[in-house]
């Protein structure tokens, strides 16, 4: 049997809200080490990779590897039936054709149970190579969300340039052009408010704002986001999930014709 109880159930709610517009169906790979998911968007331009380690659950039981194919829109609808402070348990019986979601109020006086039919998903898995990135930018996730939203009024692409001075986002379109430049923070009250650029070499790449906007829906998961860039490789956008794992998005660059 597979059973994973997540005391901070709202993490799962935020996760599914973050990916449900990008990915329709996904296979949750359940292993003794934890829960993972890898899926491409329907256009095969971006990739979502989720990891939730077993030690983030309490308790976590996985006797054998299981693949749970789940429609994320259905899952999102069901998760809306839980409260933010609910404890959420995911359970799957061996050889069963459904996943069971249990929502438990903090005082355990309310228990709801939903049985979700599993779906067969033909999911191509990709090997993600280890990459030494040219530039790694860390910034508040709310700032990332704001910049992506602001750039979208100008066009459908954004050029992100990293240098030793900081990071510059620029877009141009029919109505005009604009940019936002973030300097590396010198002194901040909280590390979560800082902008840092770890630079091996200056790099400038262009990406579709539509996807960055979808990625930024993960901002409620983590106060900070990390953007990793290298010339001619996909951008990595990473949100850490408390102390238990991460939600990563990879986006193929746009190439100047």
């Amino acid at each position: 049997m597979f059973e994973a109880r997540l005391p901070q159930g709202q993490i799962l709610k935020k996760l599914i809200e973050a990916v449900r517009e990008l990915v329709t169906d996904a296979n949750f790979e359940c292993k003794p080490s934890g829960l993972s998911l890898q899926a491409m968007d329907s256009s095969h331009v971006s990739l979502v990779s989720l990891l939730m380690r077993a030690d983030g659950f309490d308790p976590y039981q996985c006797d054998r590897n299981r693949t749970l194919g789940i429609n994320l829109r259905t899952l999102a609808s069901v998760l809306k039936c839980s409260s933010n402070d609910d404890i959420i348990t995911i359970r799957a019986e061996d050889d069963g054709d459904s996943a069971i979601l249990i929502f438990e109020s903090p005082s355990s006086d309310r228990l709801s149970e939903f049985d979700l039919k599993l779906v067969d998903i033909d999911n191509e898995q990709l090997v993600i190579p280890d990459t030494q990135y040219d530039a790694v930018v860390r910034m508040p996730s709310a700032e990332f969300q704001r910049i992506v939203r602001d750039m979208q009024i100008l066009g459908d692409s954004v050029t992100i340039a990293c240098s030793k001075d900081g990071v510059k986002f620029s877009a141009n379109g029919e109505i005009g052009s604009g940019s936002v430049r973030l300097k590396q923070s010198s002194a901040v009250d909280s590390e979560d408010d800082a902008v840092t650029v770890d630079l091996q070499q200056a790099v400038s790449l262009t990406f579709a704002l539509r996807y960055l906007s979808l990625f930024s829906k993960a901002a409620p998961l983590s106060p900070t986001v990390t953007l990793s860039f290298s010339k001619d490789v996909p951008l990595l956008v990473e949100f850490r999930i408390a102390d238990m794992g991460h939600l990563r998005f990879y986006l193929a660059p746009k190439i100047d014709e």
């Binding site: 491409m40 256009s43 095969h44 331009v45 971006s46 990739l47 191509e124 898995q125 990709l126 090997v127 993600i128 190579p129 692409s157 262009t206 579709a208 490789v233 996909p234 990879y250 986006l251 193929a252 660059p253 746009k254 190439i255 100047d256 014709e257």
Partner: peptide, 14 residues
């Protein structure tokens, strides 16, 4: 104008 690359061009299927 820009050409959108696909992710499979960068990550090899298993």
């Amino acid at each position: 104008s820009y050409l959108q690359e696909g992710i499979v061009q960068y990550f090899v299927p298993i």
